[in-house]
Write a protein that binds this DNA or RNA. Structure first.
Length: 275
DNA sequence: ATCAGCCCCTGCTAGC
DNA sequence: TGCTAGCAGGGGCTGA
């Protein structure tokens, strides 16, 4: 479940290995579900072959490879996706969907459950692409203001958790950081979104930014599948206050952490600390 | 327009 | 020990 901090960590890890490199061969898994019929395997191969990787960016949970021809290779890792480099000639594991041969290494995308996606976006089409245009501000950018949050929550009858997962309030926040931010803000994720006060909105904004910054510094959270490089896991797992801690004592008040389904997802919270 | 709920997919785990 | 049912979840879709 790579969310913003995990994707950012992967981006930083890969930068040195891919920027300026030429894609000299491309292998796409036949009928890979990751392409979602948005581009055919042969077409993707044709468009990538011979291109140089100019930059590696991120938007929300999407990784964006800017190519020398002006188009973009975009990858979303879904739940179990992993993107990492291996030595040339090294055999790729099962569930490899894409393999790019670079000058001096290979880049592989592995995804057993195929919740991830690979997009090829034409020059100039990045911001208007349906998947990316819906995203809200990056939580660490200046555009992530209390006014924006207020607008996203205002009048909404659904839960705060559902809005946080929707990517329009803040791009890149998923199940783990939604729960962690709610705990740090002292707000119950099951609260009706429209019911937050100005004060709570400000606390939520700070809490989201704080968990994201802290987690990036820890190279993300390794819960089940995520590794930011071959065999290397993130340390934020140790700092989780509620996520995955059902039945364990709250680190703040000692009461038991609860888990309930909200917006179709496991939601962890302390009923005593979060109102 | 809004929102709850379903669907995809497969590795892992709990329970028999 | 070996099997199976159930769970996990991002984002797109459907139907109320």
């Amino acid at each position: 479940m790579p969310e913003l901090p995990e994707v950012e960590t992967i981006r930083r890890c890969l930068m040195d290995k891919v920027i300026g490199r030429m894609i000299c061969e491309v292998w796409v898994r036949k009928g890979s579900r990751l392409l979602r019929d948005t581009v055919s395997g042969p077409m993707l191969r044709r468009r990538l072959m011979g291109a140089r990787i100019e930059a590696l960016g991120r938007r929300g949970k999407y990784l964006i490879f800017a190519l020398s021809r002006g188009d973009f290779l975009v990858a979303h890792l879904g739940m179990t996706g992993r993107l990492y480099s291996v030595s040339k000639g090294e055999q790729a594991p099962a569930h490899t969907h894409l393999r790019l041969e670079l000058d001096d290494a290979s880049l592989i995308l592995v995804d057993p459950r195929t919740f991830g996606r690979v997009l090829l976006i034409e020059a100039g089409g990045l911001d208007s692409h349906p998947s990316l245009s819906r995203l809200g501000p990056e939580p660490l950018d200046l555009g992530f203001t209390a006014a924006h949050i207020k607008k996203e929550l205002g009048g909404r009858n659904t839960s705060l958790k559902a809005v946080l997962l929707g990517q329009e309030l803040a791009a890149g926040v998923g199940n783990i950081y939604a729960d962690e931010a709610c705990f740090r803000a002292g707000i119950n994720p099951r609260r009706r979104a429209g019911s937050l006060t100005e004060r709570e909105i400000k606390a939520l904004r700070l809490a989201i930014r704080k968990v994201i910054v802290e987690s990036i510094a820890c190279k993300g959270t390794t819960f089940r599948d995520y590794q930011w490089d071959a065999g290397r896991s993130g340390d934020f797992s140790k700092r989780l206050r509620v996520y995955g801690r059902e039945g364990e004592p709250c680190r703040r008040c000692g009461k038991m952490i609860k888990r309930e389904m909200t917006a179709g997802r496991s939601t962890f919270f302390c009923a005593s600390c979060q109102k």
